[in-house]
């Protein structure tokens, strides 16, 4: 089962923000979308989730999303936005329940608390959402998303987590925690598509990487194949050096090289 896009394009007025993107994300894998600011990462995710009007087709688990009702899609995939502004003073647990009611775990009363525990926020269940820090709020939103697709596979059909920069406002420990949650979800048979800024976290956790540059796909493959000096330097427009630690030759990590240091 897959999440596929066919020739996705998004225009903002006359400006083409995204064009010709054919993504193939498989269930059971974490697929990362990387690229510099303005390269169209979030725009692509917005097109996949149906938030942005777009050209081309999005196929989720073999069916075109265009003809499906919001609640049909909500049972198959959950979406984590970059930031959420909540209108009224809901408690944390109430926010997570909003996600649970959308999914197919509807009846299971303990799912919201389990989801909160999974992101390490169970002790905040009765706090008012607006009183949380940015990072805490983001983890609660992840719990809401998890509660929506609590079982990675339902009736043999994988479910999907679509994450827009899930670790942007988190400290390093929580960055690792969130990425582990995403990987565990994929290992259990679900699918994960995530927009990423941090190339090293991407190398650590992603199974496939799509590199976007200027609204166009530049490379797609495993981190080994894609995270190379040449591709990254071209994508980001600066000199980047990919190293491999001797003890983990399969895991590239990316170092920025200042011009003077490299003599460039």
């Amino acid at each position: 089962m897959r999440l596929e896009t066919e020739d996705i394009g998004v225009r903002y007025g006359r400006h083409e923000a995204l064009g010709g993107v054919n993504l193939r994300a498989r269930a059971g894998e974490v697929t990362a979308i990387v690229g510099p600011n303005g390269s169209g990462k979030s725009t692509l995710l917005g097109a996949i989730t149906g938030t942005l009007p777009h050209a081309g087709r999005v196929i989720l688990n073999g069916r075109d999303v265009a003809g499906q009702k919001p609640w049909e899609l909500a049972a198959q995939r959950a979406v984590l936005p970059q930031a959420t502004r909540l209108a009224f003073p809901f408690e944390v647990l109430e926010v997570v329940r909003l996600g649970q009611q959308a999914g197919t775990a509807g009846g299971r009363a303990n799912v919201p608390m389990q989801a909160l525990a999974r992101v390490g926020m169970a002790h905040y269940a009765e706090r008012i959402f607006q009183d949380l820090s940015g990072g805490e709020a983001q983890r609660v939103m992840l719990a809401r998303v998890l509660a929506q697709v609590w079982s990675p596979v339902e009736a043999g059909v994988p479910r999907w987590l679509l994450l827009d920069e899930p670790v942007a406002s988190l400290d390093i420990a929580h960055q690792l925690q969130v990425m582990e949650i995403a990987r565990d979800f994929a290992r259990a048979g679900g699918g994960v598509v995530t927009v990423m800024h941090d190339l090293n976290l991407t190398a650590l956790f992603a199974d496939r990487v799509l590199v976007l540059s200027g609204g166009r796909p530049l490379a797609f493959g495993t981190p080994q194949e894609v995270l190379t000096d040449d591709t990254l330097s071209r994508a980001y427009g600066c000199t980047l050096k990919v190293s491999r630690p001797p003890e983990r030759a399969d895991m590239p990590y990316v170092l920025p090289h200042h011009g003077q240091l490299t003599g460039a």
Binding site: T49, G50, T51, P70, W71, E72, L73, A74, A75, A78, V79, P81, T84, R85, L86, A87, F88, F90, V95, L98, G99, Q101, A102, Q148
Partner: peptide, 12 residues
């Protein structure tokens, strides 16, 4: 209350 985009994502 979660915003229009998220409301749609949770099936509204």
């Amino acid at each position: 209350a979660l915003g229009e985009a998220t409301a749609a994502h949770i099936g509204i």
